[in-house]
Simulated assay, not measured.
Amino acid sequence: MDNPSNIVENGVTYSLGDFDGTTVHYDFYRILEYLEVKGKTLYGEDFKIYKKDRPLIRKLCAYFIKDQKSCKRYNMILEKGILLSGPVGCGKTSLMKLLRYIVPKKMPYEMIPSRNVVFSFNHLGFKTVQEYGDSGSFCFDDLGLEPYGRFYGKDANVMGEVLLSRYELFIHTKGRLRTYATTNLNAAELEERYGNRVRSRMRELFNLIAFDDKSSDKRK
């Protein structure tokens, strides 16, 4: 029987854990090895996983492999999505793109820059809010940094509307369709950007995982 934790990359098989016939027992250090290999494929040979980021990556991995025991220890709820916050250049976007690959069949989601949602709204109006709010699984990148939308002379806080719709979708599907996001903003800044109502819904939509405020810009 095939081990569902085996992933083939450029002809090389990486085993992320041991399969006993019913359950995969994942090994965090094997996952790290694979993530570094896949990261180099996606982002170039300079990509590396920093030791100081491992505790945060361990939390994210526990969520993505659905390790219920670890998630409970980290106060994460598997039915919720992930809001990954941290300063500019700490690696939020790269990680959210990368982590999809450790469970390629289980938790697919599309990465969408939040500003692109607004640009679409400016052309198509509230059809865009329906497109991103009423179906599918998305990771909205750089949440809170997008401009306000404008359609036929009316301003709109587009991502705020999308998040309210995503909350209704989350309730309707009982957490089956999750929402993910990355942001540079803290909780107070998010509330200022979207208002108390949206911030309240975000608490129910997301598990919050945060890089240290002093995390360095890895792009320098």
Rank of each mutant, 00 (worst) to 15 (best):
D20L: 08
T173Q: 09
Y34A: 04
K220F: 10
R115W: 02
G125F: 08
E9F: 09
G81L: 09
S137G: 05
E45R: 11
F211M: 11
L42P: 01
I112C: 04
L143V: 06
V117M: 11
K214M: 12
L16A: 05
H172N: 14
T173S: 15
G21L: 12
M1E: 14
R150H: 12
I112G: 00
E79N: 09
F64T: 08
I171L: 14
L95T: 05
S114R: 01
K220H: 06
K40D: 04
K174W: 08
F121R: 00
F47C: 10
T22A: 13
L190H: 03
D2H: 15
V162M: 07
S5K: 13
S216A: 12
D67Y: 13
I57W: 05
S70L: 13
Y148S: 12
K51C: 06
R203W: 05
R178G: 04
S94Q: 00
Y63P: 03
K105V: 06
T22H: 06
N184V: 11
G17Q: 01
S135F: 11
D217Y: 14
I112D: 01
K51Y: 08
T93D: 05
T128E: 10
I7K: 04
V12R: 14
L32N: 02
F138V: 03
E9I: 08
I209G: 06
S216L: 05
K106P: 02
